Amino acid sequence: MKHRIFVYGTLRLGMYNYDLYLRDEDSFRSYAYIKGSLMTILTKVYPAYLTEGHHMILGEIHEVDEETLKKIDKMEGYKGYNCIDNEYNKEICPIYDDQGHEIEKLPVYVYNMDNEDNVLLLGDDIHCLDYVQYIQQKRDGKKSLFDFDSEEE
């Protein structure tokens, strides 16, 4: 049985968890959006999605088999419905096209704000609303130790 899910972070095309979990499954179906907020998580290299807010966050619809879904649940720290220890809850959310029209409802991994440890780790807003673009901007903004202006002393 196949399951459709919406992903917005490290499971997106070209990201490291896509390579680990989805690449071999040819799971990508389309780009789409969710409404809410996208934020950094302190000391982590993956984002937090919160349903609060009305920003249109870019992501992707993927279709995976049962075994892959279980692996993704584990990777996302999803232990079960309404579990306080979840890092992410799996919630059915409206999915939108690029015109803002709802196209379907799918499971989305939502950062669990009922877990006090998670609340303490919440970082800054990701203003571009696209995690892949955010990571690319961070990479492009980093300078090598050898990138300096030789006239500065």
Rank of each mutant, 00 (worst) to 15 (best):
K2P: 07
R4L: 10
R4Y: 06
R4D: 11
V7D: 01
V7R: 03
G9F: 01
G9M: 06
R12D: 03
G14S: 06
G14K: 07
N17Y: 08
Y18F: 15
L20P: 01
Y21S: 01
L22M: 09
R23T: 07
R23I: 06
D24Y: 05
D26N: 15
F28E: 00
R29I: 07
S30E: 12
Y31E: 11
Y31R: 03
Y33P: 02
Y33Q: 08
K35N: 01
G36M: 10
S37D: 10
S37F: 04
S37H: 03
S37M: 06
S37Y: 06
S37I: 03
L38T: 06
M39I: 00
I41L: 15
Y46M: 07
L50P: 07
T51A: 13
G53W: 14
L58S: 03
G59Q: 05
E60R: 08
H62W: 06
H62F: 10
H62Q: 08
E63V: 09
V64G: 05
D65I: 02
D65Y: 05
D65A: 10
E66C: 10
K70D: 15
K71C: 13
I72T: 12
D73K: 13
E76P: 04
G77D: 07
G77L: 06
G77V: 04
Y78Q: 10
G80K: 09
N82H: 12
C83R: 13
E87L: 14
Y88D: 05
N89K: 08
K90Q: 09
I92A: 02
C93K: 14
D97S: 07
D97A: 05
H101N: 13
I103F: 11
I103V: 15
E104A: 08
K105S: 08
P107F: 13
V108F: 04
Y109S: 03
V110Q: 01
Y111A: 01
Y111L: 02
Y111S: 04
D114P: 02
N118I: 09
L120G: 08
L121P: 02
G123C: 15
Y131E: 04
Y131W: 12
Y131F: 15
V132C: 04
V132P: 01
I135Y: 09
Q136G: 06
Q136I: 11
Q136K: 15
Q137D: 15
G141V: 12
G141I: 12
K142A: 11
S144Y: 08
L145R: 10
L145D: 04
F146L: 09
D147Q: 10
F148L: 01
E152W: 12
